[in-house]
Design a binder for these strands. Structure first.
Lengths: 127, 127
DNA sequence: CGCCTGTCTTGACGTCCGTCGAATCAAAGA
DNA sequence: TCTTTGATTCGACGGACGTCAAGACAGGCG
């Protein structure tokens, strides 16, 4: 493990983040943007967006990699890479139970992102 | 991101898009993911997230490039490039009036993105 | 027209990203 | 222990991205 990987985001948005009056209500400060942007970035790939949805909409709230991988025309390592991206963005958690690894969505950050994008009637009517 | 990119999008999400039961409710189809991911991607940069917020939260619902640019330690062309990205993602509209160019948010797509990320109590309680 | 100011486009550079094959690690069985 | 199966990490390649300097374009004013 020694080598690189100095920075290891694994964004922790659950704790302190004062989180986000809507984007259209007050200007997002640079620090908030720096914290939240990586989450949007992680969702900015069609494969990861589908992975996120498959995980979040799974029956028991969790999905096995073994169910995720065959849903795409991509190799295992590539799916694993995308899952790592989602993990480091703080969007999902992973847990190994026996042979398989299960992924679970973190609803708090999803709510934060949704809140940031929410538009109140006032702003909506304005434009 | 996923390869291809058939033609430059200039995503038109306002019209037809069936748009999006919450991501955690039903699995997002590949076509929907392909259409929505670029919008998230566009928000996945701190500068663009701030630009989007500055535009959406502006007094009259629109912001002049001349007000946007000096808010960052970046050159004019770079800001212009980011604005173009937001435009091509369908997140903002631009209009030239005399000397200055004004940008205006498109609330519909913001609402769509927010709806996609929204978590119902059921799914929230589950995880 | 000519000049100035504001904005966008172009071309280039270095970095990051998505993808794969091969190697590695982890758990379960023979 | 050795083998098998599932998942991640490593190393590499090609393409996309963020940034800037320089040039081009548009509108206003003498």
């Amino acid at each position: 493990m020694s080598k690189q990987q100095v920075s290891f985001p694994v964004v922790d948005l659950n704790a302190d983040t004062p989180c986000c009056p809507p984007l259209a209500q007050r200007r997002v400060p640079a620090e908030t943007a720096a914290v939240l942007a990586p989450a949007f970035k992680a969702l900015g790939d069609p494969v990861r967006l589908q992975l996120m949805s498959m995980i979040a909409s799974a029956e028991d709230g969790e999905a096995c990699v073994c169910d995720l991988t065959p849903a795409f025309d991509l190799t295992g390592p590539t799916i694993s890479h995308h899952l790592k991206t989602l993990r480091e963005a703080g969007l999902v958690d992973a847990e190994r139970r026996g042979t398989w690894v299960y992924y679970r969505a973190r609803p708090q950050i999803l709510r934060q992102l949704a809140a940031l994008l929410s538009i109140e009637p006032a702003a909506a009517a304005r434009a």
